[in-house]
């Protein structure tokens, strides 16, 4: 079951920080990050990739 992070309406770096906090909490499984701008999507993707 995936964890959903609701980050729509938030400006960076908040979606990124919420993503990183969730990655720290969840060891396994899928995390779905909800964003509503392309910039947030890129920033979140980049941050997630940097976590491996």
């Amino acid at each position: 079951m995936s964890t959903i992070v609701e980050a729509r309406g938030l400006s960076c770096p908040q979606p990124v920080l919420m993503t990183l906090n969730e990655i720290k909490k969840v060891n396994k499984g899928e995390i779905v990050i909800m964003v509503d701008t392309d910039t947030s999507k890129e920033n979140v993707s980049r941050a997630a990739q940097s976590q491996g």
């Binding site: 960076c12 770096p13 990124v16 920080l17 990183l20 906090n21 910039t39 920033n43 940097s50």
Partner: peptide, 26 residues
């Protein structure tokens, strides 16, 4: 856990504990 500094139109955010850069935006 994080600190952000914005200079003019750019934001830089790092993890305070690890000092790793976590976000660059705008």
């Amino acid at each position: 856990n994080y600190i952000m500094i914005r200079a003019a139109n750019m934001k830089l955010t790092i993890d305070k504990e690890t000092m790793i850069i976590v976000n660059i935006s705008d």
